[in-house]
Write a protein that binds this DNA or RNA. Sequence first.
RNA 1: GGCCCGUUCGUCUAGGGGUUAGGACGUGGCCCUCUCAAGGCCAAAACACGAGUUCAAAUCUCGUACGGGCUACCA
Length: 498
Amino acid sequence: MSVRVRFAPSPTGYLHIGAARTGLFNWLYARKVGGKFLLRIEDTDLQRSTEESTRSILEGLAWLGLDYDEELVFQSANADKHRAAALHLIESGRAYRDFTPKAERADKNVKQEIAERARVAASEGIDQRSNPYRDLSLAESNARAAAREPFAVRLRVPRAGRTQFADAVYGPQEREYAEIEDLVLLRSDGHPLYNLSVVCDDIEMSITDVIRGQDHLTNTHKQILIYEALGANVPRFAHLPLILAPNKAKLSKRKHGEVVSLTTYRDRGFVAAAFRNFLALLGWSPENSEQEVMSLDELIEQFSLEGIHRAPAIFNFNEHDPRQWTDQKALWMNAEYIRTMPLAELWPLIRAELEASGLWRESFETDERAWFERTVEAIRHRFFTLKDFSAQGRAYFADEFEFDEAAVAKNLKKEPRLKELLPALADKLEQVEPFNAETSEAALRAFADEAGVKAGLLINAARTALTGQAVGPSMFEVFDLIGRTRSARRLREAVRLI
RNA sequence: GGCCCGUUCGUCUAGGGGUUAGGACGUGGCCCUCUCAAGGCCAAAACACGAGUUCAAAUCUCGUACGGGCUACCA
């Protein structure tokens, strides 16, 4: 049977980078083995699920280029089927109605409460099968249900035995039934619970391989019990190591903010291919290769479940340092893509960025095309994100641009003679014919000799005058790109800054 | 508390009985140079700890420590 995998995020908040990576691995696996990659939105938690979140997930996947096969599935649409499955399990004796009144749970410290309850249960040696309704006859159970007495549905876990499966990443796993409680399948309000819903949907969607976060590793045993009760084939499982924050805590929206949101990367100027490449290397590495920068085709070609690690990966960033707002390697990867991508692929990304900041002109694609390409080639080598094209790169595309204060102080203010030198240099440049990198360099150097100053003084001053920056490409290349007229004008206008 | 999972440079990782423990990011230095968070070269930097098996352990076994996950009528 051909491979069918799925990515099943719940639409509560934005798409988390950990979830995005899970999606990516599923997608890579499907593409690698020629299987299907399905998408299912697990929106059964009506309280927390939002349409906006679903949209953000879809957008995020599209941005990463993870296209899905077949119809998008909304889990909430299958609730009736899940309920029917639970009821069917009562009929077949694999589940039972629990008429115990629902215990109220304080929303606050759920985890602690659970741990506490478990501790007490353990110290008292509680038997997981001690539910008084477990052995109620089906006839009586039916009668009480017919009398509209509320009930939850619990799986009747066998008293003796164990579940076992071979995880593709973590190896052989087994668990005694005695350690698994009679889990609730259906709430007393008729709402199907997670473990039931996933299993039902995965069966319905004919999922052959479940690739998901390690946080589900121990749940898997419960799910296997449900598969068996339902008489369905158990899929293969592969659990992925978690992505942790620098303090080794779980990466969370509340604690870590936008750095965990995939859309942040899109909005802050990441090239999707670069971020995807970075994500692929978090918890996976290619076998027999030390190559890290990989195209999508190479990623598909190299991908294998065997290459997935068992230890969690730390997503390294420092919220107190703007330069390290996200993982340094991710930033480097992005810069690497920006400076080495084929220009044709980078072009639309730059266009989108310039359009968004009002710097785009149609002529960049027609009359000024050659100039635009040369300019991009000249500046992209020191850019880290697409935002740099509209920020640091602004002066190449527009006449209004900001001057970096430090650059002004260092290259203009520190030498008062520049008040006279810059306009004089402008005069010289206006006489150069033709005007290009070589001739402007010759003119500038000759002028420096004449004026008795170092060429570097004029070069650095000109850089700041023309681009507002202290850093940039070779200055003579910049003269050429900005052009004679604009260069001369900017040199003269810079006098007011000295 | 119980069960499960994990632990190689600061971070991502290679390596699965014999290696000068390899690569990448970041860091430091040098070179280039008109500047730079560009490019080139170099360097510092790791097998959590303790036992055991073995001629030989980062690698296999056990234990300890630490971290994480699950343990719910959440997903």
